[in-house]
Design a protein around this nucleic acid. Structure first.
Lengths: 198, 198
DNA sequence: CGAGGCCTTGACCGCGGTCAATGCCCGTGG
DNA sequence: CCACGGGCATTGACCGCGGTCAAGGCCTCG
């Protein structure tokens, strides 16, 4: 599948604010598109592809594997969201996360260093340098808060409020894992909620 | 209390890697020292002092106040550790955290923008730009992991392993709060641990 | 039709929250 | 110098929730 330049431009617009047309023209040369089938990986653990992805279509699950061999889902992202490995981008070391396409997924992606250089050559775009950092930082802060301040039940309610459509696109066991509970508990939480609302 | 330039130099060395003597000379002009009494605040909620602190002596508790008015302790830092408000440094908005000196505390501090400018003028120091980001990011990632992967009891064991001396310097209720549990539970966890080791 | 993956449900357990009582330490004022 | 009060840690009683294990049902796919 091939995206038109116009679609690319629209997509790149979401990558950062204040991009001028000439900025986008530079970006567009290095921005590529790619498709993944369910079960394929955008990035695997141990890889150092310094790329940032914008999901045009589909759904990506991010997880890591802990000492015991369990998968820990840390993030679920879908259309019009940015995804990248913090290990690679920030620490310049191999990713500890897997990024797995869960549906047929189409992404626009580009090299992070290219974006950095563009910003270096255009100080007016300095704000964009922080764009991805902030993006990930906010997610992290939010995730910490949700674990410290909320009960599992409240976390679930928060999740379906901010991602109402996602519960139909991914098995509950991954959502449970993301929320830090077992699928069994999630099932009971769901049951509690429906009986409460009567 | 006044720190000598030599002490400042030693301290600044910890702020970043690859600093040359001339870099440090520039830094030293903008680095100031300050003392706080127990109960005084390095930064209060709502302030925008764009400063980074290096704790020379003493102990600082970082907390925020949630909707219900409870204090949530998020960080405890002491000698030779860096402390700064992520809200101010990264998002350029008022701090949502209080930074409270818990003991008589002496810090070296400087304006974050000054450090940024120094780095801008010396590309070789680019690595330092990320130094603070990484510092805070790592803490955040570690905190997420500890909440997702560990039980309260395991979190406490981890805490006393990495901060063995701190339990004598701050009331248990703040440690409990930092670990996301109540002081009552912490007390029982401590009891369980000692009986286990017999 | 059988196998595997997933969700649900029941039974049981252990831990953390809550409330309340008690004891300890320490600083302050009579 | 002692008495009182406040802050904190501990402990007991009780409860509810989440984990674990196991069984059963449903769906899909080969």
């Amino acid at each position: 599948m091939k995206l038109t330049d116009f679609e690319k431009i629209k997509a790149l617009y979401k990558l950062g604010k204040n991009l001028t047309l000439s900025d986008i023209q530079i970006l567009i040369k290095s921005a590529k598109t790619k498709s993944f089938l369910p079960g394929e990986f955008l990035i695997k653990e141990g890889e150092i592809k310094k790329e940032i992805f914008l999901i045009k279509k589909g759904l990506v699950r991010t997880y890591k594997v802990n000492d015991k061999g369990d998968e820990i889902t840390t993030l679920i992202r879908y259309e019009n969201q940015v995804i990248a490995s913090p290990d690679i981008i920030f620490f310049n070391k191999p990713s500890e996360f897997y990024f797995e396409a869960f549906e047929p997924t189409e992404v626009i992606y580009m090299d992070y260093d290219v974006l950095q250089k563009l910003i270096d050559s255009n100080p007016k775009l300095e704000a964009n340098r922080k764009f991805f950092l902030h993006n990930i930082l906010k997610d992290l802060l939010k995730r910490v808060d949700s674990f410290v301040l909320l009960s599992p039940e409240e976390r679930y309610l928060e999740f379906i409020k901010t991602h109402p459509d996602i519960i139909n696109r991914i098995p509950n066991k991954h959502i449970a894992n993301l929320l830090g509970i077992t699928p069994v508990s999630l099932s009971r939480i769901r049951k509690r909620i429906v009986t409460k609302n009567k």
